[in-house]
Amino acid sequence: MGCDGGTIPKRHELVKGPKKVEKVDKSAELAAKWKHCALSQEKLRRPIVSCDLGRLYNKGAIIEYLLDKAAERPNVEAVTHIRGIKDIKELNLTDNPEWEGERRNTKGDRYEDINCGMFICPVVGLEMNGKHRFCYLQTCGCVFSDRAMKEVKTEICHKCGDPFHDEDIVVLNGTKEEVGKLRERMKEKQAKAKSKKSKKSKVAETVPAPSESKGLYDTQSPQVDVAGSSTLQNGDESSQSAVAGPSGSSSSSKGSKSSSSSATKRSIQENTDNSEVFKSLFTTHSSAKRTKDQTSNWVTHTPYHF
């Protein structure tokens, strides 16, 4: 079988040895991390955001994930820790003037530098291509190289001037150890946020509702005793009202209403504090009680009547 035409097979063609372990090209891996979204694997385009673990995403891809988490995506494990828009920060990046990007068509007739980064450090000028460590500030979102942060030590951002602390520095695309530290910091941050929410809820529960507060501090609300008499808590005014039961007559209620209304009308005219002008506004005043001879007959004419 085989060996027709005088062919002589060699040993490596007949004996299959162990497969060689495929090694990942480091330059290609770095280019994938620093030039592509960690969720959609598309090219990074502004606006670019980052999470507490230092991964780079397209903002549109993160919004789509938050709106529909049930959809199937290839790299959902990279965004399981993102629960809302507050867990990401939009980055303030500095463009690289040497980056041509999509401005020219790659025909394969010239050398293309894969290590050329889209963005640079505004202080030192290093390219953000994975060869140098970069970090961003959670307060303002500005991105700098680690060399710039070490050489120019300050508590104010080099680009926008906002103050920051060492806890606000997040390393972009760090190592496994750095990602582990960032994850622990993220968990501590979430625990503090939960404790603050629980304290606010407890304070809200201790504060009485408006209806309850009115019932506690309202001294003008009447109280009805067993005998059916209503009294005020301050003790200044008191009035008695007959409480009609299910078998009570309507005449008793009408008599009580008329007596109370007449009492209020007499009280307005008998009150010495009220002026005569104020008393004349009511029908109980003497000026309103005129005879027919004293009143004049009013005749109205339309504009068409002559």
Rank of each mutant, 00 (worst) to 15 (best):
T264E: 08
V49C: 12
Y111C: 01
K86Q: 11
A70L: 13
S260L: 10
V226I: 07
S287G: 06
D95E: 10
Y304V: 11
L172N: 12
I62S: 01
P74D: 09
V179Q: 05
V171M: 05
A209N: 11
Q41P: 00
G84P: 00
E102Y: 14
L93A: 01
K10D: 07
K43I: 09
P74T: 06
N173E: 15
W298S: 14
N115L: 06
K19Y: 03
G180T: 08
P9N: 10
T300N: 09
V49L: 04
C3T: 10
E177D: 13
G130Y: 09
R104Q: 15
T154W: 01
T154H: 01
P208S: 08
V203Y: 11
K69L: 07
N297F: 12
G108F: 09
P303F: 04
G17A: 04
S280Q: 12
L56S: 00
S253Y: 14
A31S: 04
E22N: 03
E270A: 14
R266S: 15
G141A: 00
H301I: 10
A70R: 14
Q233K: 15
K19L: 08
T231F: 05
F306K: 12
D168W: 07
E270Q: 06
A244I: 13
P222K: 06
N271H: 13
G117M: 00
N115E: 08
T219K: 02
S221M: 13
P222M: 11
K19F: 01
K196R: 12
S260F: 09
N92C: 04
